[in-house]
């Protein structure tokens, strides 16, 4: 057989950062693994069973959770996570020294470019993969990054911040400012990551203006390796489309090919 394509790994968490709101970062260290990673790729991760007390184990989620690579500096790999449900709450409870179970890196990353004028658009927990991406792109391109969140607890360092409740930065949806930015900054390429409605809005604009746009999609996943077809999203053209797997064919897609009206 060909050499293994997927590997199940256990790595010790060497540090943990608590951020504002419900956000936190888990760091692991593995240089060989770091070399295999690309911006836009993700890992399936899960809190190691042994960390939970016996009673809790029964209700621990079985599924691994897809989490993007937030940072990768010569093997210092970071996962920037928001607790939203059982899986991410189990991850939240991990401390430095605990074990993390991982499968990855998985999926196809963002295409790498040079000499472009790029707009990065993120919403909520769409922030982490763009952080890793901008680190790689910044030496070779002109970048401008806008980020949107629901309130002041959902915003992170970038060029321009929007909040829905106006508690930080500009008030409104992050997509409201995009048209103006594209014109002002002569943008010719967009990378985006965030909730589906945001990506859809963004794709509507780039489709009209005929601007290249790659988006990283979120989908509920089970296996993360292309087996179960649980993470499929509609991709193609009106009369010729299929459900493609976010974990295998994605998570990065050409926004012009995603059939946003079929969600």
């Amino acid at each position: 057989m060909d050499k293994p394509r997927h590997q199940f790994l256990e790595r010790t968490i060497y540090s943990r950062e608590e951020l504002c709101g419900d956000y936190f970062i888990l760091w692991i260290w593995d240089e060989a693994l770091g070399e295999k990673c690309q911006p836009g790729q993700f890992f399936e991760i899960r809190a190691h069973y042994s960390i939970a007390d016996a009673e809790e184990t029964r209700s621990l989620p079985k599924l691994f959770k897809p989490i993007s690579i937030y940072d990768n500096a010569e093997g210092r790999i970071g996962f920037f996570i928001k607790k939203v449900g059982t899986g991410t709450n189990a991850l939240y409870k991990l401390k430095a020294g605990d074990l993390l179970e991982l499968i990855g890196p998985l999926g196809n990353g963002f295409p790498f470019v040079t000499g472009r004028r790029i707009l990065l658009v993120s919403g909520g927990i769409g922030y982490p993969p763009l952080w890793y991406l901008q680190k790689e792109l910044i030496k070779h391109n002109l970048l401008y990054w806008v980020h949107g969140g629901s309130g002041q607890n959902d915003v992170f360092p970038c060029d321009e911040i929007w909040t829905e409740d106006g508690s930080f930065g500009k008030k409104g949806m992050v997509t409201e400012g995009i048209r103006k930015l594209i014109a002002e900054k002569k943008i010719d390429l967009i990378y985006s990551c965030g909730p589906i409605p945001m990506l859809k809005e963004c794709a509507g604009i780039t489709n009209k203006l005929n601007i290249e746009h790659y988006c990283s999609l979120e989908a509920y996943m089970a296996c993360g390796i292309g087996v179960c077809y649980g993470c499929a999203i509609p991709v193609g053209y009106e009369n010729d489309w299929n459900y493609l797997r976010v974990c295998k064919e994605g998570p990065v897609f050409n926004a012009g090919e995603v059939l946003w009206n079929k969600f």
Binding site: K62, L63, G87, M221, Y229, A232, P234, Y243
Partner: peptide
């Protein structure tokens, strides 16, 4: 083609697909 997404949900005690 299969069913429209979302296609999965993990409950307290098992998986819906």
């Amino acid at each position: 083609k299969g069913n429209p997404p979302p296609r999965l949900y993990e409950t307290e005690a098992g998986l819906l697909n």
